[in-house]
C-alpha cells in the first residue's frame, strides 16, 4: 500500500508552475527523502499534502483516503514546517499535552505519550519555556509534536537545514529511530542525510519529478563507478592510453597530461583489472582513487539535465 499518492498534482502561481503534474507513490512504512534544490517546489508540495495550500489541479491520497483542501482530516498525519513556531509561553510538556488533547487522547495515555516522546527527543525534564529554546530544541520538539497522535505519515520540511552539525546528527538519529513505525516524508537538500537514513527517494526540479525509487535502485541505475589515476611520469601517458584501449568495456578521459578518469565497470572489477595491468605494463602511478558515486553526485547529474 502507498502511504502517499498524488496524481497530476500541480500548483500554479500566475504563469509560474511551482509544482508540475507530480505523480508520487511513496510506500507505507518507508523513510522517503524528498530532494530538490531551493525553489524546486518541495515546501509547496508538502503544504498541499498537509492541506495548507490548495492544489491548482490534481489529486492527493494519504493512506488511501482522498484529501480535499479546507476539509482535511488530519488525525493520521503529523507535520513539522521548515521554521516551526510554538506557543512560546508553554513548556515542551505543556505543548505536547495541548496537542494530545486536540486529538482527544485519554488522560493516562496522553501523559505517558508525552513522557515517552520527550525522552525520545531528549527534552524530558526541561522546564524552560519554549520561547527560550534553541533552534535544535525547537526542531526536536517539532518532531515530537508531529508524532503525538501516533500518525501513519509524518511530513518533515527541511528539519535540519538550519541546525549545527551536532543538532543535525541528533535529529537524523531521531528520524532513523522512526523506521518501521511510521512513514516519514523528509524534505531536504542535505543529500548525505538521505543516503544515511532514507530507503526511498524522490528528486524534483522545477516542480517536476525526475527520479523516484529506492535509494539502492537509484544508485544502481544512475551511478557509474570511477577510478582517478595519476601517473608518476607524464612520459607513460601514451603507454597508459594504449593499455586501456585493450579493455573494451572501459572509457578513459584525460584530465591532465598525466591524470586520467576511468569508468565502465563496477568498482571491484575496475580495481581487479586495472591495478594488475598497470603493474604488468610497468607503469608507475602516483595515486589511485576509486570512487563510488554518492547520492549527491547522482543528484547533480540528474538535475543538470533537467
Amino acid at each position: 500500500m502507498n502511504a502517499i499518492e498524488t496524481r497530476g498534482l500541480t500548483k500554479q502561481f500566475g504563469a509560474y508552475k511551482a509544482v508540475n503534474e507530480l505523480n508520487l507513490s511513496v510506500p507505507a512504512g518507508s523513510i522517503c527523502g524528498f530532494l530538490g534544490r531551493n525553489g524546486a517546489g518541495k515546501t509547496t508540495t508538502i503544504k498541499m499534502l498537509v492541506g495548507l495550500a490548495k492544489p491548482t489541479s490534481g489529486s492527493i491520497s494519504l493512506m488511501g483516503t482522498k484529501r480535499k483542501f479546507g476539509y482535511c482530516d488530519n488525525s493520521n498525519i503529523g507535520y513539522l514546517p521548515d521554521v516551526p513556531n510554538f506557543y512560546g509561553y508553554m513548556t515542551a510538556a505543556e505543548y505536547l499535552d495541548f496537542c494530545g488533547r486536540l486529538y482527544n487522547t485519554d488522560n493516562k495515555k496522553r501523559r505517558s505519550r508525552v513522557d515517552e516522546l520527550l525522552k525520545q527527543v531528549d527534552l524530558f525534564g526541561t522546564k524552560t519555556r519554549i520561547a527560550g529554546f534553541s533552534r535544535g530544541m525547537k526542531q526536536r520538539l517539532g518532531i515530537a509534536q508531529a508524532l503525538m497522535n501516533e500518525p501513519d505519515v509524518i511530513f518533515l520540511d527541511e528539519p535540519v537545514s538550519a541546525l549545527d552539525p551536532i543538532g543535525r546528527h541528533e535529529l537524523i538519529n531521531i528520524v532513523r529511530s522512526l523506521r518501521g513505525s511510521v512513514t516519514v516524508f523528509l524534505s531536504t537538500h542535505i543529500l548525505s542525510d538521505v543516503e544515511n537514513v532514507c530507503d526511498y527517494a524522490l528528486i524534483i526540479e522545477k516542480g517536476k519529478l525526475l527520479v523516484e525509487d529506492t535509494v539502492e535502485n537509484i544508485k544502481k541505475q544512475h551511478a557509474t563507478d570511477t577510478a582517478n589515476i595519476k601517473l608518476y611520469s607524464a612520459a607513460d601517458s601514451g603507454k597508459f592510453t594504449t593499455l586501456m584501449q585493450t579493455q573494451p568495456k572501459l572509457t578513459v578521459e584525460e584530465l591532465e597530461p598525466s591524470e586520467f578518469l576511468v569508468r565502465g565497470m563496477e568498482l571491484h572489477e575496475l580495481n581487479k583489472q586495472i591495478l594488475p595491468a598497470l603493474a604488468q605494463a610497468d607503469i608507475a602511478i602516483e595515486s589511485y582513487h576509486a570512487h563510488v558515486p554518492s547520492l549527491e553526485d547522482i543528484f547533480l547529474e540528474v538535475t543538470k539535465h533537467a
Binding site: L52, N74, S75, I77, Y79, P81, P84, N85, F86, N149
Partner: peptide
Amino acid sequence: QSGSAALTLTKNISH
C-alpha cells in the same frame, strides 16, 4: 505570520 497556526490547523481542529 509566526507559523503557529500552520502547526495547529494541521491537527484535529476545524477552522
